[in-house]
Write a protein that binds this DNA or RNA. Sequence first.
DNA 1: TAACTGTACTATCATGAATAATACAGTTAG
DNA 2: CTAACTGTATTATTCATGATAGTACAGTTA
Lengths: 122, 122
Amino acid sequence: MILIDYKDPRPIYEQVTERFAELILKGALESDFKMPSVRTLAMELSINPNTIQKAYMELERRGFIYSVKGRGSFVAGNDSLVIRHRQDCLKRLGDLASEALEYGVTKKEMIETIEKIKEGKS
Amino acid sequence: MILIDYKDPRPIYEQVTERFAELILKGALESDFKMPSVRTLAMELSINPNTIQKAYMELERRGFIYSVKGRGSFVAGNDSLVIRHRQDCLKRLGDLASEALEYGVTKKEMIETIEKIKEGKS
DNA sequence: TAACTGTACTATCATGAATAATACAGTTAG
DNA sequence: CTAACTGTATTATTCATGATAGTACAGTTA
């Protein structure tokens, strides 16, 4: 479910955070799904529990999960998260396109690039 | 010409590198323009000469400038760099669009976003 | 020749990521 | 009830990286 890439320059806690956010946003993890415990996941990934704790705190701060002392951490309802993320994707795309325009890339080229994308190539 | 943003999480040498790359790619610095010397620029920015040295080494590695011991560093010819950067922009845009597709953003939304961009809004 | 250039090297410091080891409080299955 | 699990918090240590500081050497130029 989670893989750590030690060639990735990003810190481990960030990779874990992003990976779970991705799974939740793509609907791979249902609402109220019980997340692996901090200690269990740390064991599985052969890393320190504090690193997982940091990732879970960040996921909770961003609304992806909720944690209950003694019970565990669970996936939060994700409808508004999905909507927010789509808006964020569009914003990032617009920003990147604006930048590309400044470097001389044309809107036509960009639109053609998007139209050429094969759907479902994950 | 160069400004350091201490709120930017990126290291200083990277900010300097990216800023010069931007100036060169946008044609603000002509070929063979003499770059400020390592020590001069360090003085101006109130940072360490080694930090500028690192930025210039990176700029040279990426083909933006060339350095001559005793004479200085100079902007390299930038035609192929510009072409390469436009291709890179398009690739990044395509990658981001592919990712957005996986999160449920439609091509139509993306294309509309691009079409709405006001040109020359830098 | 003096003052400038790039380049290289070593040492030091601050910061953040990660580890390590506890500790405490709440939950739950046996 | 209790043992074993949960999340959470805290402190100390290690390590890598960015940045600073100081020095040195080689080449250029007015």
